Computed example of a mutant assay.
Amino acid sequence: MVPGLNYFDFQQTAVVVLSEDLKVLTLNSAAENLFGISANRLCGRKLGWAWLNIEDYQQIFLNVATQLQPMSQHDVVVDLAGGVKRHCGISATPVEQQTGTEILLEFDHQEAPSSVVRDSELRALQQISDGMLRGFAHEVKNPLGGLRGAAQLLARELPNDELKEYTNVIIAEADRLGNLVNRMLTPNAEPEMVAVNIHQILDRIYALVSVELPDRVALTTDYDPSIPNIMGDPELLIQGVLNVVRNAQQALVEAGGYGQIVLRTRVRRNMTIGHQRHRLVAQLDVVDDGPGVPEQLREQIFYPLITGRAEGSGLGLPIAQSLINQQGGVINFTSSPGHTVFSIFLTLEGET
């Protein structure tokens, strides 16, 4: 280790290390920027000296130190001097040292408030969306049959098998959507939950979306290969995630047709989805560098027919939320100009 070098400074996220009594032992440059105070002034003091409403969350940190279990909390408000508020997600990890237990805090700072969908909102959204989805499914069922039939006729006229690969994709997608529609129209249909490799789902989505993207929109992946299988319904997962990715795609196209979309997977520890606490969950992020969700739409973005785009239907995200909810998951998002993240949280095999 190089003397005097704070290795946390190489991290873009804000990092603070606390003692068991919540005194600041060290912090990195990103944390100095977050709290608006230098490490020289903050080290040795209790974090509450800078984080004025820490009492709202300090029991979480004390539990981490006593139970030696990492915890995470999103939509945390950090009140600072002068009426400044920061909105963050926080991960707290116990680190056992010879002198006692230290608490490693990592702050995921968002410029805009984290839009977390609450349980009551989810129930209301589910009721509204379910009725509209059944009507939507009924309307698209017949056109899907026509699309499939036209693709079959076209395939018979094509001169070689290489060209038929394209019609095969159309037929396969029409079959997938047709099956999804039939399940939507079946009363009280339950998801067919199985162990699923989330990266195989994402690779399928990558293949579907990459052929649609303009040349100046890049689609990349950032996978955590250690993530175990999740529990989900493959058809519902594909459609739910696909809707979120296409939402990002359309936002970039309408903003000028250039930018980047990243499909990122991580594991989150000790997170509550609905009323169920999970030791581990899978987090799938769809990240784009577009203009962001308009502020006036952020509270209603998952409601049907709410859209900020001239050509938008206002159905893609509500359908995605409904499909993910049916599998015991949830979609949250954070957004600011140049950085929007839709996070899909799903339970892992053996964690339900």
Results as ranks from 00 to 15, higher is better:
178 G>T: 12
330 V>N: 08
294 P>R: 01
314 G>T: 08
182 N>I: 05
305 L>F: 14
81 A>S: 15
262 V>A: 05
204 R>E: 13
325 N>G: 08
121 E>S: 03
244 V>H: 03
298 R>L: 02
21 D>W: 06
145 G>P: 07
214 P>Q: 10
201 I>L: 02
335 S>F: 01
69 Q>D: 15
128 I>D: 08
302 F>G: 01
35 F>I: 02
16 V>K: 04
347 T>F: 04
342 F>M: 01
4 G>Q: 13
191 P>Y: 08
14 A>K: 05
193 M>T: 03
234 P>A: 09
183 R>G: 02
311 E>H: 14
224 D>N: 13
156 R>C: 11
120 S>Y: 06
339 H>I: 00
192 E>W: 01
170 I>C: 14
36 G>E: 04
133 L>G: 03
45 R>G: 02
348 L>I: 03
133 L>R: 12
7 Y>S: 02
189 A>P: 00
307 T>H: 02
234 P>D: 11
250 Q>F: 13
44 G>N: 08
162 E>A: 09
225 P>Y: 15
153 L>A: 13
49 W>M: 06
200 Q>N: 12
310 A>Q: 10
302 F>S: 01
77 V>H: 04
8 F>T: 00
320 A>L: 02
291 P>R: 00
326 Q>L: 14
315 L>A: 02
146 G>P: 02
32 E>H: 10
39 A>H: 08
72 S>W: 06
134 R>K: 15
